[in-house]
Amino acid sequence: MHSYAIRAASMFDGFDLSGPTTVQVTDGRILSVDRTGAAPTGSRDVLDLGPRSCLLPGLVDTHVHLAFDAGPDPVAALVKTDDAELLTHMRAAAQSALRAGVTTVRDLGDRSYLALALAEEFRRQPELGPEILAAGPPLTTPGGHCHFFGGEVEGAEALRAAVRERHARGCAVIKIMASGGHMTPGSVAPHDSQYTLADLRVVVEEAHGLGLRVAAHAHGVAAIKNAVAAGVDSIEHVSFLTGDGTTPDQDVLAAVAESDSFVSLTLGLDPRFPNPAMSSPHASVVLDAYRDLHKLGAKVVIGSDAGIGPFKPHGVLPYAVSDLVQLGISSPREALAAVTSLAAQACGVDGRKGQITIGADADLLAVHGNPMEDPAALLDVQAVFRAGVRIR
């Protein structure tokens, strides 16, 4: 039995900040949490992180694409790469996320179920990468958004069969493209719906019957309304696009906020690279909608969409916490919860991930500074632990 203690000057446990803390780790799990600042007992092996340290749960990114290389044209790169090489690239992407302190990722779209293969690798050797909660190829209409992943399907029975196949293979979540998107030439516009409300209800009913959650990609207002009405577990992007641009409807905002669905906001940019979407005239309208959703009480988490371009490298999630605060969407405490405890709830792994508590996995991040005062402290990584193993 391998046991050791970690001492930190402060701790954010997924909910609140406290002072000097000692966390005892045994065989990859948290055995005890002592907030008195007392020296640990019963452990010869003590790691003291020093006077500026803050210990947090490992971060949880609710929306990534490990199969995208974060290059200038990730779709073209994907299409010309065979599965063996793609798996190698995905492994490197996952490791980049882990080094940034992202210890759990929800992969919402890959090819050939490669994220499942990688998840199994990391289950056997968790120190090699984050825990991956894989969706497999996302459900999309023929020729629809991200059809190149191989998840084209239409019709109620085919949708039910697709959900059952993903469950049988071991997927952790079902991803469905309720609307079009920005990365698939020739498919419907991002504001147009790809599936009907009836289709979405079929997928939710089948998935929930099998114990799986459903994440719906939804840019368009109609798709957002349908996703809420169908009872999906998380709505991705939530851009409120219409044929005339971006128009957040107050009734739809209220419906989203009052629903049981988590809202996975697409935030987090590497400042070294420009993001054309942020210079769009619609960007400020989307950000206003995000602020309104938070004010109305929506369950806001962050899905970085890592991989979709140079401004979205794998491991970009820590930047998103600063975004939430600087854009006036939430407080620092709420922003930190959005990438730890609340994100774990959205992914169905709460209790085990996203918090520092007895019995949770020892997936931990230590930074220099106080992220409650300055969320940018998350970028000053001191140490990362995965299943109790220090990997940085």
Rank of each mutant, 00 (worst) to 15 (best):
A158Q: 14
L317T: 05
G28D: 13
P57I: 09
D34E: 13
A117P: 00
S279L: 12
G28L: 02
P130S: 15
Y4N: 11
L269T: 05
G143E: 05
Y319I: 00
D107T: 11
H2F: 01
A76W: 03
I356R: 10
P130M: 08
P375Y: 06
D363Q: 08
L197V: 12
V188N: 04
D251R: 15
I235L: 11
A343F: 00
R272N: 09
L241N: 10
S279H: 03
D110W: 08
R123L: 05
K295E: 03
T21L: 13
S179L: 07
R106T: 13
P332S: 14
A255L: 15
F240W: 07
A218F: 10
V285Q: 15
E373A: 12
F122V: 05
L342C: 02
A346R: 10
P310M: 09
A255G: 11
G109F: 06
L139K: 13
A168M: 14
H237L: 06
V339I: 04
L128I: 01
A344H: 14
A229Y: 15
D83C: 10
P57V: 06
S187R: 10
L86N: 03
T357V: 04
A335M: 03
L128N: 06
L212V: 12
K353I: 06
A158T: 13
M1Y: 04
V60Q: 05
S10V: 08
H219Q: 10
V33K: 13
A346L: 04
L49T: 11
G315C: 04
R99A: 14
R44T: 08
E165T: 15
A9I: 12
A67P: 01
D292L: 09
S264R: 02
P318L: 03
I176A: 00
V300T: 03
S261R: 14
F68T: 02
R91S: 06
A178D: 07
Y290S: 02
L133G: 10
L378D: 04
G181D: 12
S330E: 02
T104K: 06
T266R: 08
T141Y: 11
G348F: 12
A344I: 08
E85P: 03
D34P: 02
L159W: 08
V33W: 09
G144A: 03
A178C: 10
P310I: 06
D48V: 12
A94Q: 09
D249L: 09
K295S: 09
L324W: 00
D251C: 11
T103R: 09
A77L: 07
A5D: 02
S96I: 00
V256M: 08
V79N: 13
S96D: 02
V214S: 02
V252S: 09
T242F: 07
P51C: 11
